[in-house]
Design a protein around this nucleic acid. Structure first.
Lengths: 395, 395
DNA sequence: CTTACTTTCTTTACTTACTTAAGTAAGTGG
DNA sequence: CCACTTACTTAAGTAAGTAAAGAAAGTAAG
């Protein structure tokens, strides 16, 4: 297959329906090359001709769009006690969702997950391209298979390989914040931005980095934003260090500080705590000023080094963003050097299914990306997309 | 010209003499392709056949090396009151050096620099590929021509274009810390490392980032490490913010704190100050503990986010590294998360000519890099290297 | 000193992935 | 109706790679 075919598919998938002429301009290719590439994709049923766009003085362009049912993807979000998942088509339209209890700790975890997913895989009608799993922890960038996660109680656990063998389907793991970053980079505002940062607030504080349009994974991992030192001397973090940002600004930390101050009892829920804070400005100030300032300074420092165009803020913690924002904005402004003060901030309302949706994006990314032939799983996903129509299932 | 030809030239330039067979293995190309590519480069006099490497059981390999005199480069380091420069051949051997007084402030600065460089350009025998200039400040990544520098008193000054027109030679500007990073990435320990960080200590505190083997310049610049917030509330920095790392750990800041403490008088030199600190442990402790700890924490936080393999520490300030190190190492260790604690640190002794040498590296980089066709200057440098032998000057 | 083997490099013939050139298709505006 | 524009197709050619085969230049063993 031609190099360009992949680029064409990628552009149609991410930008929506496009004409051949437009694709040629975007990709810097000649007309004939596009005729060739699109013929290949049309033959295989991956794309289809749609309506014509109105003429601009000459022959009107025929738009080409992705065939939604040429493939389906499963996206999973793992938590300590449950699993959320979605099945989507190539338009990233959710076909169905599921949520099941799951114990991530203990010997039987992988087996339980296997059985749970086997049920879901059976429900898929058509070509299943692969399963993407978002993990709250560190995933090896080499194989997208082994995971370390404090939250799940996993140390160097090769989940992906086992699942993939048992289910006979490509399985790709990725850090859950990174899946969110890829979603933004494929579909969100990050689509036409080459350098941006995603941060997530919640039980932990995470960061995903997109550099030159690609997810950055560092040499030994990246984006351990929750464990930058924010206060000195500070409290002991579960990572073993002192004064991490998480000890100050994670939701458990804020909850704990409210308990210590006597505003709530230890078993009061987070939502009750937020209600209380919204009803009493003094309490809001006492609970959120320090964390929000620490977050602003820490993020400002990353911006000074990284010079991004865009910052996404997400995670379950953004439900309380109104309480963070004033202090955060002030300290962020004060810590960023003036030449870099041009970035935009986008706060994304949090949604449980969105994370699972993000996990499907890593599979799609693998099938579309230029340089994702690193591991066997990605290659297999690509192959499945190519031969989709050959197996004769498509609508 | 083939895509591979550039890769071949790049590998020979950076790795030293190599055989065709070795290059084929390194680049993942077939024998015929290498025969073709090397024939092109040999015809043009850019490379030459050297001695044969001893046989390993078969036909011995013929080594191919860069022809030193196929091109020459000028590298300049600008300071507020003087200019240091070197002329090197393609082996990066220094042919001659110069140092001249120069007033960076005022209307006449560019004209003075032009005249000063014109003299040097005339001294070059052979093909001058281009002039690289390291600037203590921010250089626009778009054109490698306009510079902002507090230290030189320049705001948005388009130096490169004017010099290039007057001297009829490609001129590339780059931040001086970045030139150092490129030097490490081309010739130094950073050669086989894809993600590393360079920091410099001195009048300011700088940072260069190499990501995926390429210099990272951010969307609005990058590496403003001297202006991350290290202390709150902190002293006013010349950048207008409060509590920047530079207000604590730059050499003027340390000097000032020694004056305030009454150890020295305002006009005592830095070297006298270091003598004093080395003779009295208490003074060393009082002057260097806080800055070194702040540096350790700030760097640790960057490491947590970027996960690099290697850290270079350089700049005129490393002359006092023995005084920084103990406090620095301790706080760095304490702030980096355990999974990323695998990086190495290399402290580079500082040398005035090395910075100028670094400036030549950006020109060489432009002629060798895969994707440096962004601006006209880089393209011109490439052309000059290609047609070098055609003009019939070579040895 | 021949013979067998290894490794390096070159030549030839082919493939792939594009291109340019020329023409067809289908609209617009005078 | 006819010139003009824009979109797409067909045909032929080119650039840059590959694979296969062989020549060149060494080592190792009998």
């Amino acid at each position: 297959m031609r190099d360009s075919t992949n680029e064409v598919l990628r552009n149609i998938a991410t930008q929506g329906p496009l004409s051949r002429a437009q694709l040629a301009r975007d990709l810097g290719l000649s007309g004939p090359t596009l005729t060739q590439a699109t013929k290949y994709l049309l033959d295989r049923g991956l794309i289809t001709e749609l309506e014509q766009s109105p003429s601009t003085g000459g022959r009107p362009a025929t738009l080409l769009g992705l065939v939604a049912n040429a493939g389906q993807l499963l996206g999973i979000k793992l938590a300590e006690d449950h699993v959320v998942g979605v099945c989507v088509n190539l338009h990233s339209e959710i076909l169905w969702k599921f949520e099941e209890p799951f114990k991530s700790r203990g010997e039987a975890a992988v087996k339980e997950l296997t059985n749970l997913l086997r049920k879901q895989v059976k429900r898929v009608k058509g070509q299943l391209l692969g399963i993407g799993i978002g993990v709250p922890g560190v995933v090896s960038p080499l194989d997208s298979s082994t995971a370390d996660s404090l939250m799940l109680g996993w140390t160097n656990l090769d989940v992906g390989k086992k699942l993939s063998q048992e289910l006979n389907t490509p399985v790709l793991l990725e850090n859950d914040v990174n899946t969110l970053s890829i979603t933004e980079s494929l579909y969100g505002h990050g689509r036409d931005v080459s350098n941006f940062i995603t941060i997530t607030l919640g039980r932990g504080i995470g960061m995903g980095l997109v550099i030159n349009g690609e997810l950055y994974s560092g040499s030994y991992g990246a984006g351990e934003f929750g464990h930058v030192q924010a206060v000195s001397p500070g409290a002991l973090c579960e990572c073993g260090k002192m004064g991490c940002l998480e000890t100050l600004a994670s939701s458990p930390a804020i909850h704990a500080s409210a308990v210590t101050a006597g505003y709530i009892r230890p078993n009061t829920s987070i939502s009750k705590l937020l209600e209380l804070a919204r009803s009493d400005k003094k309490i809001a100030h006492a609970l959120f000023k320090k964390p929000a300032e620490a977050l602003g300074i820490a993020l400002g420092n990353v911006i000074n080094v990284f010079g991004p165009e865009l910052i996404f803020i997400s995670g379950e913690g953004v439900g309380a963003w109104d309480l963070w924002e004033p202090h955060f904005q002030k300290s962020l402004k004060a810590s960023v050097v003036s030449t870099m003060n041009k970035f935009e901030i986008e706060v994304d309302p949090w949604d449980d299914a969105k994370w699972a949706l993000g996990a499907t994006a890593i599979v799609l990314q693998a099938s579309l990306s230029r340089n994702s032939n690193i591991n066997s799983q990605s290659v297999e996903v690509k192959n499945r997309l190519r031969i989709a129509s050959a197996s004769g299932f498509s609508a």
